[in-house]
Write a protein that binds this DNA or RNA. Structure first.
Lengths: 123, 123
DNA sequence: GAATAATATTCGAAAGATCGAATATTAATG
DNA sequence: CATTAATATTCGATCTTTCGAATATTATTC
């Protein structure tokens, strides 16, 4: 059964709701961890742990920018697999967090969202 | 994360080498357990346990015919998902057990393989 | 350079998956 | 009806995954 090692490893990476949510959230391009924390309503450590699994699987990579760390998908060819599964299981395809993440851009203090905040004064 | 329940359940079903092998073996149509046992070189109980997982997931169903129980895929729409993963992970697609199972037909005593064996005399 | 913000890592307990061994079930045969 | 062939189920040990709590790391700011 050695021949199935690779395929099943990747299925294992896709096997958790939080990891599917992360991959969906990254459809729009890179996101910092704080975005996912807010969009999913999950604890920071929890998300970080699942990001580690995806990183170890070679599906995502990170990039630091000041305080924030941005994650991106490095093998977008994984999306056809996910989309095939969504079709199979009758879920609407695409990114269910799209609107949520877009609205985060208003208030998020991370440099990607609000590059000019450097000089902003808070009350 | 409730929304990912269904998708991840199915990924979980695909997550094991033996279960992938079973689904590949069933591409050619229904097979009895003895075929998979011979083709995979795995113990009977092991295969049976994984068949149970696939059955509980609603992917396969069984049918008895005399002594043998034949399994078949009841949701072949799962194959596009598997094929997408094979493409992703660089595996050749299709059923790697095709030749093996075909050759089993020569010697297998199950009714599907040799429907006329009823009257066959052994030494 | 001490404090802080964002994120990562470690640890430990609980839950789940795997797998072999043993046993149970079911239908066919004599 | 006892035996047998094919397959299923149960059990128990081991390994893996999950997840919260605590702690560590890294870059920034004052």
């Amino acid at each position: 059964m050695q021949r199935y090692q690779s395929q099943t490893q990747y299925f294992k990476a896709l096997m958790h709701p939080t990891r599917m949510a992360i991959l969906d959230a990254l459809r729009e391009g890179e996101q910092c961890v704080c975005h996912m924390e807010a969009a999913f309503g999950l604890r920071q450590a929890h998300i970080s742990q699942h990001l580690m699994v995806l990183r170890d699987a070679g599906l995502v990579a990170d990039r630091r920018e000041g305080w924030n760390i941005f994650y991106r998908v490095v093998r977008p060819e994984i999306y056809p697999v996910i989309d095939a599964m969504k079709a199979f299981s009758g879920e609407p395809d695409g990114n269910p967090f799209e609107a949520e993440i877009r609205s985060l851009r208003q208030t998020c203090p991370c440099p990607k969202c609000n590059p000019d905040d450097k000089d902003t004064e808070y009350s």
